[in-house]
Nucleic acid binder design. Structure first.
Length: 132
RNA sequence: GCUCCGGGCGCCGGUCGCCGGCGGGCCGCGAAAGCGGGUCCGCCGGAGGAAAGUCCGGACUCCGCAGGGCAGGGCGCCCGCGCCGGGAGGUGCGGGAUUCCGGCGGCAAACGCCGGGAAAGGAAAGUGCCACAGAAACCAGACCGCCACGGGGCCGCAAGGUCCCGCGGCAAGGGUGAAACGGCGGUGCAAGAGACCACCGUGCGGAGGCCGAGAGGUUCCGCGCAAGGCAAACCCCGCCCGGAGCAAGGCCAAAUAGGGACCCGAAACGGAGCGGCCCGUUCCGUCCGCCGCAAGGCGGGGCGGGUCCGGGUUGGCCGCUCAGACAAAUGACCGGGCCGUCCCGCGAGGGACGGCGACAGAAUCCGGCUUAUUCGCGCGGAGUCCCG
RNA sequence: GCCCCCAUCGUCUAGAGGCCCAGGACGGCAGGUUCUCAUCCUGUUAACACCGGUUCGAAUCCGGUUGGGGGUG
């Protein structure tokens, strides 16, 4: 496919890296199911939990407890987790359907951005491919 | 110039992404009207002075609302203006009154001037506390001390001096203390004392005098010098306040329940009004007495105290906002501008790095208080140093 | 979010305006007892979260910070 005459790049890009409300986990019950259903997968900046259920759709939930910092720092941690998931969702195994919960750790506040992306990629590589 | 304090102002444009609203296209559901936090496009809006702490107050909502009282909480000088509020009231600023502290003048008290502070009604309504020290700590009191008288010893020819004891007078001086019963000077006296006098201080009463808008100030007269402090001790006086809180609360759907057991006590062992508590009282039922053939009426009583167990509590919408979420929205990059540091250059200037800064993110809303904190510019005030 | 509560040696606590440079228990350290250890005895180590105010005097009363804890759909 050729690029459009006006040169706009989004015409050739596959699905745009958006992350709207419907693509996120929003209920306390969903988070509790994720904690109960999977072992934590730890990286330096974050901890990952998975939730496989009939309604799973590779959605994201983010968590930052009070141990991370004050309200400004918690908001920043959750913002970075959402951003790393939004821009790097293609690193997940193809056909991946489970919902993902990312828990922030305090190190995410001072880590350089490439380090956060590296953590997420490292976690994504260890995920098993979904059964066919 | 430096430091501190209090107000004020502060980046621009673009790309991608996020939240909300409005409009439109496609898609889904529906017979349709229409609905949709499905998706795409356009336009508009999108954190603070503290959004914080939750220390006060209000709006709003539900519970409650014959009446009275108790308990509990808040506030406490005056005037003007501003803000919040229906009001009561709260609060900021300015001015003033009172009082306290510091400095200067003054021998000192008082007083005057300058500066700063006050959670600022009442300590002659009552209760309580005031350790240690000190004789005595709140209405009395006498350790050292001062003085008179009586007796005795010693010295002396004597006048008298001195020491001890006794009985009295006094509270000036010493000493203690955070605080000791008006200050200072004089008269007076055996010694002393507001005992008396002058000047002052202070309290009460009066003239309800004079000045002031008022708090209050001030003059004169009379009486007085007791009546120390603590009310951020109980308390008294005056004014105000019912309780809980948007997770309030309302609607829809789903689920569960339509509660139970024991003890004391009793003529009777019911239910509701009723809020933290009490008095009192109302209605229905019940018990007792009287009237009545009866229906019913009148009067009265009582409905008390304590211990324990069980069931349900998950979603959506509204409340909700010109920010308006409900696992909670502001970031990344590019260009320009500004600031700081460094490097190159004689210079105009050029380049590199860092930053646009701190504290920190709305969660029902509004006002006040408190706390955290700053790169630059500008305003006002205070302090300090240098030069002229 | 809203509404409450608490803070004393390393730990658990006493204290209610002066008797408290804060007492007790467990612990730590030193010494004694014992052949050694334990027990026991003696001594010692150590605290009022912080900043102001009221008061002659504050762990205590009153404000304000800080740090913990709880309730509530």
């Amino acid at each position: 496919m050729l690029a459009s005459p006006d040169g706009r790049a989004d015409c050739v890009r596959p699905p745009r890296p958006t992350l709207r409300r419907a693509q996120r986990l929003r209920h306390d019950r969903q988070f509790r199911e994720a904690y109960a259903a999977s072992a934590p997968r730890r990286a330096r900046c974050m901890v990952m939990f998975l939730r496989e259920a009939p309604d799973s759709a590779a959605r994201l939930g983010v968590v930052a407890s009070r141990k991370v910092g004050n309200a400004v720092e918690r908001a920043r941690a959750k913002r970075r987790l959402r951003e790393v998931f939004r821009l790097n969702r293609h690193l997940l195994p193809p056909g991946f359907r489970a919902d993902v919960v990312l828990v922030a750790r305090r190190a995410i506040l001072d880590a350089p951005w490439p380090r956060v992306v590296g953590d997420f990629a490292w976690l994504a590589r260890q995920l098993p491919a979904p059964p066919p």
